[in-house]
């Protein structure tokens, strides 16, 4: 996959400066990546105040743990995104989570009316074309389950309830879908 190497290099450098407590590098890093990370958090949590809290916590973590970033394991953006996604998943599974907002109050819904869906946008990114094509090859229902799980952090149970499907079927569709993706992406 054709990655944006110079951007990765720049972000890796900013992370290594951040590890040395360089506040200017950290602020630059924040300016560069916070819009993308905020979009991820907002998409998963669907509430701006929660997404702001999570974003703040994640940047505190990045400030304190930038030294743990290992270039050979993953791209800088992937590493930071994973911190955000994990925190969002924890957040969504808090035992006494307030009721989620309805779709009507969806803070990102209003951005999306005139925008193409994620699959179309994937198609537009060179490096993502392979993933988009492989997702398209999945059965429609399986694709829906995988995208809902990824973008909204839904559990097997949530998915079964939302789509009125038996839990066992949801589990095996998700599992099979992931393995089909793996097969498709490695060809």
């Amino acid at each position: 996959m054709g990655k944006d190497v110079s951007r990765d290099e720049e972000l890796a450098l900013l992370l290594s400066r951040t590890a040395l407590a360089d506040a200017v590098a950290f602020e630059t890093l924040y300016r560069r990546v916070s819009p993308q990370l905020f979009a991820t958090a907002l998409r998963m949590l669907r509430r701006s105040d929660w997404a702001e809290d999570v974003l703040q916590e994640c940047f505190m973590k990045i400030w304190h743990h930038a030294a743990d970033y290992a270039r050979e394991h993953s791209a800088p953006m992937t590493w930071m995104t994973q911190i955000v996604r994990n925190r969002c998943l924890d957040w969504l599974r808090r035992p006494n989570l307030e009721q989620l907002v309805t779709e009507d109050d969806d803070p990102i819904g209003q951005y999306e009316d005139e925008r193409p869906g994620p699959l179309q946008q994937l198609q537009a990114l060179d490096e993502a074309r392979a993933l988009a094509q492989c997702l398209r090859k999945l059965e429609a229902r399986t694709r829906e389950l995988i995208l809902l799980a990824y973008y909204q952090g839904e559990s097997h149970n949530d998915l079964a309830k939302r789509l009125a499907l038996p839990l066992g079927s949801v589990k095996s569709w998700v599992r099979r879908g992931l393995m089909q993706l793996r097969g498709c992406l490695s060809t």
Partner: peptide, 8 residues
């Protein structure tokens, strides 16, 4: 990760 990269 491209699923995140493609979010506006």
């Amino acid at each position: 990760n491209p699923l995140n990269d493609c979010l506006p």
